[in-house]
Amino acid sequence: MIHEVDEALQGLLGESALAASGVEIVFDAPTRDWAARRNAPTVCVFLYDIREDVTRRGSGAGEVHDADGYVVARRTPPRWFELTYLVTAWASRPQDEHRMLSQLLACLTATDALPPRLLTGTLAALGLTVDLDTAGTGLDAPAASDVWSALGGELKASLGVRVRAPLAGVSRPTAAPVTEGLVVRSAARRPSVDPVPGRRLRYEEVDDPGPEGFAGPRERLPAPARRHRGGRQP
């Protein structure tokens, strides 16, 4: 699921004006060594926090159907996770970086959810909305200053982007649907006695199910009258 969110974010940012100007989009950790090796305008989308949204955890199991409508598996509900990214712009001049950040901000704030056309794999199969929150005040994640300190670099202007994405549940295949009736045959213990013909369960006056089994024609008897309380007939 995480790599599918990365691909969707890369596709979203690639549709902005940054892609036309030759800006590279990477998902590397912006460490001091990485910054020293950078030699071209770059947008870095660094994933630094993953945590589950327990308020959206469900229970039970859903049914998975095939093309004919039969139930082929049962799947547990998806579990939702919040992926928090640190988005930064890298160029030779601060003015160029701020211009790139401005374009990123305009692109990301205009999108409340990742477009379905950019979703792949399990995200596309689930068909659920993948929310996107940019520069929000309620980001429950480590502060940007703590992230920069852990990376060993200097504090830099950045955008906090949080994606709420579902992780597909576990699917367990079910047994194949029953297509034939149950027939009981009894055999004598002594070889000299002929075996009793097969008898169909739950149906009266049927000695042999025949070659067609339950698919064959049969006579249905009228249902018995229901008794009222007290044992009297209606």
Rank of each mutant, 00 (worst) to 15 (best):
S149W: 10
R164D: 02
R117Q: 07
V170S: 02
E82M: 08
T122R: 13
G62L: 08
I50V: 15
E180D: 11
L182D: 12
P115R: 01
A113N: 07
E63F: 09
A125S: 01
W90D: 04
T134D: 02
A89Q: 09
C107I: 05
Y70I: 01
G181M: 11
A91G: 10
A73P: 00
E52W: 01
R56K: 14
H65Y: 13
D131E: 15
V161G: 03
D53T: 00
G60W: 02
V147D: 11
Y48T: 08
E52K: 03
A110D: 14
L151G: 05
L105Y: 07
L104F: 07
V45Y: 01
L86I: 05
W80T: 08
T174C: 11
G160C: 10
G153K: 04
L139D: 13
D133W: 08
P173C: 01
D96Y: 08
T179C: 05
S158Q: 11
S92Q: 09
D68A: 10
F81A: 10
W80H: 07
E52C: 04
A157I: 09
G181T: 15
T109V: 14
R164T: 14
L86H: 04
D131C: 09
L155M: 14
L132A: 02
T88A: 15
A73V: 00
R79C: 05
A125N: 08
L83P: 06
R79I: 00
L119G: 01
L105Q: 10
K156H: 14
E180K: 07
G60S: 04
S145T: 14
D131Q: 13
L182F: 13
L123H: 08
I50K: 13
A168I: 07
Y70K: 12
A157W: 09
D131A: 15
R93T: 15
S158H: 13
R57K: 12
A67R: 15
A143M: 08
L132N: 00
V163Q: 09
T137R: 12
D112N: 12
A141D: 06
E82C: 12
R57A: 09
W80R: 10
T109Y: 10
T76H: 06
A141E: 04
Q103S: 11
G121F: 03
S145V: 13
V64P: 00
D112F: 08
G60E: 02
R99V: 13
A168L: 07
P173E: 09
H98V: 12
L167C: 11
L101M: 07
H98L: 14
T84S: 11
L126Q: 06
T174K: 06
L104R: 05
R57Y: 06
V163T: 03
L114G: 01
W80N: 09
D49G: 04
T76P: 00
T129Y: 08
P77L: 06
A91L: 01
